[in-house]
Every structure is written in C-alpha cells, then in structure tokens.
Amino acid sequence: MPQNKRYTQDEILFIKSNVKKLSVKEIAEKLDRSPKGVRSQIERLNIRLSDYERNKPHVWTDEELNYLKDNYKVVSDKNIGLYLSLPESVVLRKRLSLNLRKHKYVPYIQANYYRVYVDKKRYWLHRFNAEKKIGRQLLPTEPVHHIDGNKLNNSLENLYVCSNKQKHGYIHASLESVAFELVKSGLIKFDEDKGEYYL
C-alpha cells in the first residue's frame, strides 16, 4: 500500500481503539503501513503515546539490576529480556547506560568456529590460541587442525598447526584411512538400515 495514501476512517478508528494495547509497530503491521507513518498519524490525532503505561520507561528493580549485572557477560540481551519479561531493546539500553559492555571478551560462533574480540580486533579463536601455542603469528597459508574433530574445542592440546592446506588434507585422509582399518577389524561397524557408522 502506498505510504502517502490518506488514512481511511476505519484505519483511524482502528488506531484509536488499539493505541493503548498495541505498539506502533504492531498497528503498522495490521494496517500495512510504515511505523513512521502510523506514528505521524497518531500525532495528528493529538494522541500522546507517553501517556500510556506501556510506553513509559521501565523502572528497574534491584533484583532485575542484579540479574543483569551478574549475567550480561554470558547471556545475550535477548535471553535476559526473556527471563525478565522485558524487550531486548530495554535490556540493551540499560546495560549500555550502566557501561556494562560485553564486546571483546565473549566468544561467539560464526561459520561453525568461535570468534572473539581482543583489544578491539576480531580473531578466529582457534587461530588465536594456536599462535599462543607455537609462540608466533600464523601465516595465512597455515591452517589449524582440530585433533578431536570438534571445531569448538580450542584447547591448546587440541590444536595442530599445519604447514599448508595440503598437509591439512593429508591429516584428514589419514584419519579416514585409520577409520577404515577399524571397520575392517570390527571396532567400527556400519548400520545398513540407518546408513551410518557406529562404534
């Protein structure tokens, strides 16, 4: 629907009937209008959103504040909001107002690997830890192999620096070769019904 189209009497009635219980975004979705357009129409109707309790700033209790302070480093704003029955945006604003910043020290998963911020720079955690292990910066051509196959296990003993991609490929091929030897010896079996190997 074109956003510059005049509001019908039915739309205006809908806004007046629902402004106390629905957010601007929810009203906009119901009317197939933009939130900005709906907010402008509400202003033209001389309706003050701030008069409604749900639009007033949330007053944080000591219990809520303590939960936020105790958990912001390891729990997302969204999940804190779900626990406290608050919108994620309310949690975010309060956290930032208290200068509770989770930026660099909380690893997050991207493309099945952990990433982490250190001194405002972003690193792949497995490469960052591998550099600690060998005592130097990795070359871009040096892949890091996860010995147990778990890409999220970045303990130093689980990381092996390969000299190049070919070496990394050789390691995976050697694992497959060993696995097939275990199949031959009966230690690994194949389930034909499920189409998968098992111990």
Rank of each mutant, 00 (worst) to 15 (best):
Met1Ala: 15
Met1Arg: 15
Gln3Glu: 15
Gln3Leu: 14
Gln3Trp: 15
Asn4Gly: 08
Tyr7Asn: 03
Tyr7Ser: 04
Tyr7Glu: 06
Thr8Gln: 14
Thr8Met: 12
Gln9Asn: 15
Glu11Asp: 10
Leu13His: 15
Phe14Val: 05
Phe14Ile: 04
Phe14Asn: 02
Lys16Glu: 15
Lys16Asp: 11
Lys16Pro: 03
Val19Ala: 00
Val19Asn: 00
Val19Gln: 00
Lys21Phe: 11
Glu26Ile: 06
Glu26Thr: 14
Ile27Lys: 01
Ile27Pro: 00
Ile27His: 01
Glu29Thr: 12
Ser34Gly: 09
Lys36Thr: 07
Lys36Tyr: 06
Val38Met: 01
Ser40Pro: 01
Ser40Lys: 08
Gln41Leu: 04
Arg44Gln: 13
Asn46Cys: 12
Asn46Leu: 12
Ile47Gln: 02
Arg48Glu: 12
Arg48His: 12
Arg48Ala: 10
Leu49Phe: 09
Ser50Glu: 14
Asp51Pro: 04
Asp51Glu: 15
Arg54Gly: 08
Arg54Cys: 09
Asn55Thr: 08
Lys56Leu: 09
Lys56Trp: 09
Val59Gln: 14
Val59Leu: 13
Trp60Ser: 06
Thr61Cys: 11
Asp62Gly: 07
Glu64Gly: 03
Leu65Ala: 10
Leu65Pro: 04
Leu68Glu: 00
Tyr72His: 09
Ser76His: 09
Asp77Ile: 03
Asp77Gln: 11
Lys78His: 13
Asn79His: 14
Gly81Ile: 04
Gly81Phe: 07
Leu82Glu: 07
Tyr83Met: 06
Ser89Tyr: 10
Val91Asp: 00
Asn99Trp: 10
Lys102Pro: 01
Lys104Arg: 12
Tyr105His: 11
Tyr105Gly: 07
Pro107Lys: 07
Tyr108Met: 10
Asn112Ala: 12
Tyr114Ala: 02
Arg115Met: 13
Arg122Asp: 13
His126Gly: 02
Phe128Gly: 01
Asn129Asp: 00
Glu131Pro: 01
Gly135Ile: 08
Gly135Thr: 08
Arg136Glu: 05
Arg136Phe: 05
Gln137Val: 11
Gln137Asp: 06
Gln137Met: 08
Leu138Arg: 00
Thr141Trp: 02
Thr141His: 09
Glu142Lys: 03
Glu142Thr: 03
Glu142Pro: 02
Val144Ala: 00
His146Phe: 05
Ile147Asn: 06
Ile147Glu: 08
Ile147Leu: 07
Asp148His: 10
Gly149Trp: 05
Asn150Gly: 09
Asn150Met: 10
Asn150Arg: 09
Lys151Phe: 07
Asn154Ser: 07
Asn154Val: 03
Ser155Val: 05
Ser155His: 11
Ser155Trp: 03
Leu156Asp: 03
Leu156Gln: 06
Asn158Met: 04
Leu159Val: 02
Leu159Ile: 01
Leu159Lys: 00
Tyr160Gln: 04
Cys162Gln: 04
Ser163Phe: 11
Lys165Asn: 11
Lys167His: 07
Lys167Trp: 00
His168Lys: 08
Gly169His: 06
Gly169Thr: 05
Tyr170Ala: 04
Ile171Tyr: 08
His172Tyr: 11
Ala173Gly: 12
Ala173Glu: 11
Ala173Ile: 07
Leu175Gln: 13
Glu181Tyr: 10
Leu182Trp: 12
Ser185Thr: 12
Ile188Ala: 00
Lys189Arg: 15
Phe190Val: 08
Asp191Phe: 11
Gly195Lys: 13
Glu196Lys: 11
Tyr197Trp: 15
Tyr198Gly: 04
Leu199Arg: 10
